[in-house]
């Protein structure tokens, strides 16, 4: 084992970071090496010294002043409590449902763009004929699903057309 690696292993032994078998191996190494024994003792001493003498410090400004800045930063912002859990659930659901919603929207748009018979108060009489309830206008349609064709005949009576024209010209 390299010199430097042994030293790091000794340190790991001091820090309790070795497995039992590794620790045993290092103890055997130390048994035959006074220099390692000294290093082990010094590391324990240094570790002990540092860990037990942390400098305590006091905030160099007033507590109120310190709090004011924090309060300004968090003011108006709710802590991420239960609400955030809910929002996480919502986000998760949204992530899962977004593709489905997208597909549903596309299907809906396609459906709405399909030509449809306007609601003119027309009653279907048969496959290819419609009749207006209004006596003045006659409508006939021919639908062929196979050929995707719809033909519509609108038949205004001459009197009615004349009335509309006069009304429009006035």
């Amino acid at each position: 084992m390299k010199e430097n690696k042994i030293e790091l292993k000794i340190q790991a032994l001091v820090d309790g970071e070795l497995t039992e078998s590794e620790a045993e191996q290092m103890r055997e190494c130390m048994d035959n090496d006074v220099r390692l024994q000294i290093l082990y003792a010094q590391l324990i001493q240094t570790k002990d010294l540092i860990s037990k003498h942390e400098m305590s410090r006091i905030l160099p400004e007033s507590g109120d002043f310190y709090w004011t800045k924090i309060a300004q930063e968090i003011g108006g912002v709710e802590p991420a409590n239960q609400g955030s859990n809910n929002s996480l659930v919502i986000k998760w659901l949204f992530r899962r449902l977004a593709p489905l919603l997208g597909i549903a929207t596309i299907v809906l748009l396609i459906t709405l763009q399909q030509p449809s018979v306007p609601d003119l108060g027309i009653e279907f009489k048969s496959d290819h004929e419609l009749e207006l309830l209004d006596d003045d206008i006659e409508v006939m349609t021919f639908n062929s699903i196979d050929d995707s064709i719809s033909i519509v005949w609108l038949d205004y009576s001459m009197d009615l057309q004349k009335d509309y024209m006069e009304l429009w010209l006035d």
């Binding site: 942390e54 400098m55 305590s56 410090r57 905030l59 160099p60 400004e61 310190y66 800045k69 924090i70 930063e73 968090i74 912002v77 802590p79 991420a80 409590n81 239960q82 955030s84 859990n85």
Partner: peptide
């Protein structure tokens, strides 16, 4: 004190410790 022990700069330690409180508030859950 923890911020100072790492950064060794008073102003920076104050700023970072305040940021830590803001983060703590946001992550309380």
């Amino acid at each position: 004190a923890r911020a100072y022990s790492i950064m060794r700069n008073e102003d920076l330690a104050v700023d970072l410790s305040q940021n830590a409180w803001v983060k703590a508030w946001q992550r309380l859950a």
